[in-house]
Simulated scan of single mutants.
Amino acid sequence: MSLKIALTKGRVERKVIPLLEQAGIDCTPLKNKKRKLIVQTEDNKFEFILAKGPDVTTYLNAGVVDIGIVGSDILNEQQNDQYELLDLEVGKCQFVLASTADFNVGSPERKIIGTKYPVITKKYFESLGQDVEIVRIEGSVELAPLIGLADAIVDITETGTTLRENNLYVFDYLDKVSTRLVVNRMSLKQHSTEVFNLVDNLKKVVSEKIKLQGEKIR
């Protein structure tokens, strides 16, 4: 029996593969996958399904995969109700409220906010006691305040470079984001030994990585 793992392809995939290798998984087939979207390890213990982030939770909720590896931004936006077992401490970034220099977050006017994350954005402005109009944008969110589509944006940023290069300023910091390992509830009951073996091995890798980072800072 192979554990089926939906892995967010692209940036998350590249960050997670080294962790999987340090946890004792031979990721050679995954690194040499070419255009394959389903990859089996040589020992048949794991089957990786490469998917876009928002689809990872869809597969989890449908029960077609046992484990999902995906950013916490997507989990929070989709209000995931499966079991989150581990923060992998990679793919770190931050939600921010950003706009042009003349934006006033405290102004009484009803604001228009551009974002890929309407649920998270609505919660944030509700916490401020503000009712806003949300415009969902799937592409370059940074464009919205520059072309007059929105007063400000809520988006995730890793370094802030794109914001700075487009003369946008951060007005507030929201939740931090990182990559999480999430397990389907039924799979946790049916394959608990295999799931917890993987989680325990990854937890050791992540803990060692954090320890080494701490030593470098000192």
Score class of each variant (00 low, 15 high):
3 L>Q: 03
3 L>C: 04
4 K>A: 03
4 K>P: 01
8 T>F: 01
12 V>E: 02
17 I>W: 01
17 I>P: 00
23 A>V: 05
24 G>Q: 05
28 T>Q: 00
30 L>N: 00
31 K>N: 00
35 R>V: 02
35 R>T: 03
36 K>F: 01
40 Q>M: 01
40 Q>L: 01
41 T>C: 01
41 T>L: 01
42 E>K: 01
43 D>L: 02
44 N>M: 03
44 N>C: 01
44 N>E: 01
45 K>W: 03
45 K>Y: 02
46 F>S: 03
54 P>L: 07
55 D>L: 07
55 D>F: 05
55 D>C: 04
57 T>H: 09
59 Y>I: 04
62 A>V: 08
64 V>L: 06
66 D>L: 11
66 D>I: 11
66 D>K: 08
66 D>A: 08
67 I>C: 08
74 I>G: 05
75 L>S: 10
76 N>V: 12
77 E>Y: 10
78 Q>M: 11
80 N>L: 15
81 D>I: 10
81 D>C: 11
91 G>N: 08
93 C>I: 10
94 Q>H: 14
95 F>P: 09
96 V>L: 09
97 L>T: 08
98 A>Q: 09
98 A>I: 14
99 S>E: 08
99 S>D: 06
99 S>I: 10
100 T>V: 04
105 V>H: 06
105 V>S: 05
105 V>Q: 10
107 S>M: 04
111 K>F: 03
113 I>L: 10
118 P>F: 12
120 I>A: 10
120 I>Q: 13
121 T>H: 12
122 K>Y: 10
122 K>C: 08
122 K>E: 11
124 Y>L: 07
125 F>K: 08
125 F>Y: 06
127 S>R: 08
128 L>D: 06
129 G>V: 05
132 V>S: 03
133 E>V: 07
140 S>M: 04
142 E>S: 04
143 L>W: 04
147 I>S: 00
153 I>C: 06
154 V>M: 09
157 T>I: 12
159 T>P: 08
160 G>L: 14
170 V>F: 12
172 D>K: 12
173 Y>S: 15
173 Y>N: 14
178 S>Q: 13
181 L>N: 11
185 R>Q: 07
186 M>L: 13
186 M>Y: 14
188 L>R: 09
189 K>D: 09
191 H>D: 10
194 E>Y: 05
197 N>Y: 08
198 L>E: 12
199 V>R: 11
200 D>W: 13
200 D>Y: 13
201 N>R: 14
201 N>G: 12
202 L>P: 10
202 L>C: 13
208 E>A: 14
209 K>H: 14
210 I>K: 15
212 L>K: 13
213 Q>K: 15
